[in-house]
């Protein structure tokens, strides 16, 4: 026994500082946040009392949370994830079979990922300006120039329930290149022999894709959905820099920030954050479990 410990002990010691740091900063903090959400802390001085689920119950009758934030984030997630998946997939499909200048195209599709959400929002808030007539500009002006003036939109300033969907445009601009590279890697991971075998059997290219390649892309698609969904739920800066305090694009992440650090409603902020954590955990935990298990089987 001692000899075995001597064999792996030093390794454990080497990573112990990291493990402790993460234990405190991830699990300790998450736990403490849940504890705060069960207190009545409001204002500058922390309260350490225990009020049960009162903050959560209050959230369920909080108009901002139930009628704006939750539907908003649902709409945003739906449009952003579906849109990025579709665009990323099509781009990967176009590139898959090899085209001249592939590297150039790939670089162009991916570079927005290197740009911060703050800068992205600053650029796009001007592109999605809702001026009309003489003050028309941005995308609306491009559309009008292309004879598509009918598509003129007020974007995120629109009065519609779907105003927040406009933010999926800069978010998708930022991340669909990422989805493309995931799909591209997946498509190229399919052994050529498999495709060749199908072709020999007389399958047409679309059929080869449908019967050979598509089933193998399922895990890739799952990765993409999980990653995009968790980004969507926790994104803060993109909305914040786009049009802060516009309730049409308010999300739980923003409500948490403003109510906690502007209003001093710490307990309520902690409750919103805990719900966000639950939302993210329901997609992430199975994903990590699955990934590590698949890897072990290999």
């Amino acid at each position: 026994m001692m000899r075995r410990i001597r064999a792996w002990g030093p390794g454990l010691v080497l990573i112990l500082p990291s493990l402790i740091a993460l234990a405190v900063f991830v699990y300790g903090f998450l736990g403490w946040n849940i504890r705060v959400s069960l207190s009545s802390w409001r204002g500058l001085a922390p309260a350490h009392d225990f009020v049960g689920l009162r903050n959560y119950i209050a959230l369920f009758s909080d108009q901002r949370f139930t009628e704006f934030d939750v539907p908003n984030i649902a709409i945003f997630t739906l449009v952003f994830v579906a849109g990025s998946l579709a665009i990323g997939f099509v781009m990967a499909l176009l590139l898959d079979r090899g085209v001249t200048g592939e590297n150039a195209f790939r670089s162009v599709y991916l570079f927005p990922m290197a740009i911060s959400f703050i800068a992205t929002a600053i650029i796009w808030r001007w592109l999605m300006d809702n001026g009309s007539g003489e003050s028309e500009t941005g995308i609306n002006k491009l559309l009008a120039g292309a004879g598509l003036g009918a598509l003129h939109s007020d974007w995120f300033k629109s009065g519609s329930r779907w105003a927040i969907a406009a933010i999926a445009l800069p978010a998708g601009w930022s991340l669909s290149g990422y989805v493309m590279s995931l799909f591209l890697a997946g498509m190229r991971g399919v052994p050529e022999e498999l495709r060749e075998a199908a072709r020999v059997d007389g399958a047409s290219e679309p059929r080869v894709f449908w019967h050979v390649v598509r089933p193998m892309l399922l895990p890739v698609m799952m990765s993409a959905v999980v990653i995009l969904t968790h980004i969507s739920l926790k994104t803060f800066d993109l909305f914040y820099a786009m049009d802060q305090k516009n309730i049409k694009i308010d999300t739980p992440a923003l409500y948490m920030w403003f109510t906690t650090f502007d209003g001093g409603f710490y307990a309520r902020g902690a409750a919103i954050a805990t719900l966000l954590l639950l939302g993210v955990a329901t997609v992430i935990v199975p994903y990590i479990w699955y990934s590590v298990r698949v890897e072990r089987r290999r």
Binding site: R42, G43, Q63, R64, E67, F68, G159, K245, N246, I247, K248, D250, F258, T259, D262, G263, G264, F265
Partner: peptide
Amino acid sequence: NNAFGSEIDTALGIFVQ
């Protein structure tokens, strides 16, 4: 105060909608 002010902000945002 800040707390009341931020609640009014929320209510006003909802009212405008």
